[in-house]
């Protein structure tokens, strides 16, 4: 699509683009290029010069059991975050959609956790499950369950999943409710006249018609779980215990800044770059399809 009517001149548009071009070049293209460049080198221990290793960093990473474990951790983590936040949100949205009045009020009541930063959400959940003062862990103790996410990897994973999914429910609820309200009532009523019960209607009509929303949310939530949950991990577990919650983005940080292993961290950035690229392609493919509907 192009504008028919345009203004003349080339100097003015160049000047208009300048701020964005400078900022993007300095803080985006140069660092991204650096990440690719650094991923081909191993710095010597004194940081004086680097040795070119080609794809050596990548080879090492892909054979590194810790890195592979981190991939698996990320897969488990993002699947769980996506399922939990979307499942709860869909359930609440279906309930709200059944209401004749008041779905707007519930929307207001459910929408605001979106504004709570992942890192703050992490602190809130850490407080509830703190092994010494946490209310929830204390009551679990009364029930005979000894909660300790500091030592138990599965409990740590459960806690970061819930804390990450929590604020995300708002977002998913909003889109699910809009999707549900866009389904023509006549279709559902026709099924009701045919005698289909609520669950049957949901399974055979509502859920399939909701699939564009569901697919969109799947991609967006996976991207969220991959990249935006750093604050939750850092505040609650710092990747532990025994790296059981070290997701890929956290590993880029801990290897690069804590471990000072720049070559490996850069190579990990490049791998993540491919993951983002892949997800973006999937997303755009989907949007294209939606536009052509």
């Amino acid at each position: 699509m192009e504008k028919r009517v345009t203004f003349k001149g080339w100097l003015l548009p160049m000047l208009l683009l300048l701020p964005q071009v400078i900022i993007t070049a300095v803080f985006f293209f140069y660092p991204a290029g650096q990440a690719v460049w650094q991923s081909l080198f191993i710095p010597d221990p004194f940081g004086l010069k680097s040795q070119f290793v080609g794809l050596g960093n990548f080879e090492f990473l892909l054979n590194d059991p810790f890195y592979r474990a981190s991939f698996l951790t990320t897969a488990i983590f993002s699947t769980l975050v996506t399922l939990v936040s979307m499942g709860v949100a869909l359930f609440l949205a279906v309930l709200a959609d059944r209401l004749i009045k008041g779905s707007g009020a519930y929307r207001t009541l459910l929408i605001w956790p979106y504004a709570v930063a992942p890192a703050v959400a992490g602190v809130l959940w850490l407080f509830m499950f703190n092994t010494r003062v946490g209310v929830v862990s204390w009551y679990l103790g009364l029930l005979g369950y000894d909660w300790n996410h500091v030592l138990n990897g599965n409990e740590a994973m459960g806690l970061v999943v819930v804390a990450s999914a929590w604020g995300r429910i708002s977002y998913n609820f909003l889109f699910f409710l809009a999707g549900l309200q866009a389904i023509p009532r006549s279709v559902i009523e026709a099924a009701a006249i045919d005698g289909a019960r609520f669950w049957t209607r949901f399974r055979t009509i509502v859920f399939p018609l909701l699939s564009p929303t569901t697919f969109f949310l799947l991609v967006v939530n996976i991207v969220y779980a991959f990249f935006e949950t750093f604050g939750v991990i850092h505040t609650i577990t710092s990747g532990g215990p025994q790296q059981s919650t070290t997701i890929l983005v956290y590993k880029v940080f801990s290897d690069g800044f804590v471990g000072q292993d720049l070559g490996s961290s850069a190579a990990q950035s490049v791998i993540l770059l491919f993951v983002v690229g892949l997800l973006t392609v999937v997303q755009f493919k989907y949007i294209e399809r939606r536009v052509h509907y």
Partner: peptide, 10 residues
């Protein structure tokens, strides 16, 4: 396509 988390070190 590139969140800041990915190009963090450079």
């Amino acid at each position: 396509m590139l969140p800041v988390e990915v190009r963090i070190v450079p």
